[in-house]
């Protein structure tokens, strides 16, 4: 009788384990859902500063996790400004002075276009699995969706945010809410994703609100107007010569 009971309990535990993916499996699933070999998108950034609200539109290209190119299309003052990221380097091109400036060091912590995002945030490698180890803190319902609650800890101290807490939509593998922390444990940024829509085989959030918790203001809204995955992008897009053209 006793043996039977142990057998039943063991079988039950195995069943639970089969139902619950490991935290690493959840991260892999997110990476698979959100990254691809190439991405082309058009987006708008609605920046709610203390004094005004402005919208900055751009066309964006990315290749893998390392290369990223953005060209601003409006407003007029910012039109033609380009930003290129290659590996760990970031360049900005100003059409008025026709000069390219490399952004490095402390400047990377500055806000991009007055938004709640820093250059460093743009520089982040997008693969969570490569950067963080995860621990499952449980599950919860967020905005009506069943979510995993994970605590991520950076694998290397070169990563900008040493820890993050994320709520991941169980069914769609999309993080819906994130908290990014400093080494001291202070909350630096919160990210809320919404308008999760199906694009091909993926689920993708079309609207993300970034809030710098150290700044006054109502946060920055990032709206993806169009997005295409795995489209052919000429290599020249990610070269520095492209910036001056």
């Amino acid at each position: 009788m006793k043996k039977l009971l142990i057998l039943i309990l063991a079988a039950f535990a195995l069943a639970v384990q089969a139902q619950n993916p490991t935290p690493q499996q959840i991260l892999r699933a997110i990476d698979q859902n959100l990254t691809s070999t190439t991405v082309k998108s058009t987006s708008r950034m609605v920046i709610n500063s203390r004094r005004s609200t402005r919208t900055v539109a751009s066309i964006n290209y990315s290749r893998g996790n390392t290369d990223f190119y953005t060209e601003y299309t409006s407003p007029p003052r910012d039109k033609g400004t380009k930003m290129l990221k290659q590996g760990n380097s970031l360049w900005i091109y100003d059409p008025n002075t026709q000069r390219t400036v490399q952004i490095s060091g402390n400047m990377l912590r500055q806000s991009v276009m007055g938004s709640d995002l820093s250059y460093e945030d743009f520089m982040e490698e997008s693969s969570l699995l490569e950067q963080y180890t995860a621990a499952l803190e449980g599950d919860l319902t967020y905005e009506g969706r069943d979510c995993w609650k994970l605590l991520l800890t950076a694998k290397s101290n070169r990563i900008s945010y040493p820890s993050k807490r994320i709520y991941v939509d169980k069914a769609r593998n999309v993080p819906l809410y994130e908290e990014w922390f400093a080494r001291s444990g202070r909350l630096l940024k919160t990210i809320k994703a919404s308008n999760v829509t199906r694009i091909g085989s993926r689920w993708y959030p079309r609207r993300v609100v970034f809030k710098d918790e150290l700044k006054q203001g109502r946060g920055t809204e990032y709206i993806v107007d169009s997005i295409e995955f795995d489209v052919p992008i000429p290599a020249s897009i990610f070269s520095r010569t492209q910036l001056g053209n």
Binding site: R54, P75, R77, D94, N96, T97, R99, Q110, S111, S115
Partner: peptide, 16 residues
């Protein structure tokens, strides 16, 4: 030289 900063409304600012 190039001066790089941000405008009062947060846009990128460049000046020679």
């Amino acid at each position: 030289l190039m001066l790089l900063g941000s405008t009062a409304d947060g846009s990128m600012a460049f000046a020679q």
